[in-house]
Amino acid sequence: MPLLRNLGLAALVLVAALGVTDVAFLRAVPSPPRLGTNFSSAFLHLEIERLRREEPRTVFLGDSVLWGYALRPSESAPALLAAGGLRDANFAFEGGSPANTYAMLELLLASGVRPARVVFNVNQKTFNVADSAYATLHPSVAPLARPLLRPADAALLEPGAADDSLSAQLDREAGALWHLYAMRADVREMLFGDIDAAHALHAALEVASGAKARADARDAPTTERFEGSYDLAPLGTGNVSVHYLALTVAALRDAHIPAVAILTPTNHALLHPYVDTPQYAGNLAYVRRLIERSGARVVDLDRAFAPAEFLDNDHLTAAGNRRLARRLATELADP
């Protein structure tokens, strides 16, 4: 019996220590300039709650271009605008698409967030049925946003992978009670700057050994790599991304939220055979008309950047992001 009593006491000490840590963690967890590469639903919920309690801000939505792919968080255009005095919040994320933009917008509005303005990017490649984010919600956005979608809209999306295994159920239960556990992926990224300590160590070793520089040189983007990334078939209402883009601009109009849609910078020099065609121009014009019909403003940056300002087909370098921030600062200052 003393053994059982001692084990029971030890379990109580463990639970009490975890409880105290969890309360302290929730108070201390910082709000980074953008969501992580591997952000959790719990962290997204926390960030939305913080945004709800603050004065209205300009909210950025969209994909990895606005998120700041391959750059430090402080180098992304929204972070540079914030450093310049704009009160903003970057809710763009890697793997974004019109469906994800709408899901995030619905989540923000349903949570009571009232953005002063929404700035979102529209990337032509995400209208391609073959794009990985075309009809798929981000796994950390889906659990929060999918229940908010009308059944007819949700039916257009890939069904989420339902995992009812004991492990998944325990994971959900533990995550609901224990914030640190639910946000472990976010904690690791904040601490190590990578998805976990092992990846951070591996990345540091690759940089030190020169392996990363060799891999970057070997994997430099070539035109052929993007064959099939842009669908040149004429866009129409049957396209899931068009459907969700229309829902997004309608929701913004109905909520009386000023909206600015950025037609994503595209590296025409690299993608010349696929995008310098009448079909691509026609699809771009279609998207532009769709947005403008709802009263949102369009900032067309499709051809606004030089090849040297791109990392690949659409992601901008640090210098490219600086110029994007300057351009957006001018656009956003214009009422």
């Binding site: 998944a168 472990r184 992926a185 690791r188 601490l191 998805i195 300590a197």
Partner: peptide, 13 residues
């Protein structure tokens, strides 16, 4: 929790 691998999407793990 802090040093665990990113692949630990399973509670038990």
């Amino acid at each position: 929790i802090v040093f665990g691998p990113s692949s630990d999407t399973r509670f038990i793990y």
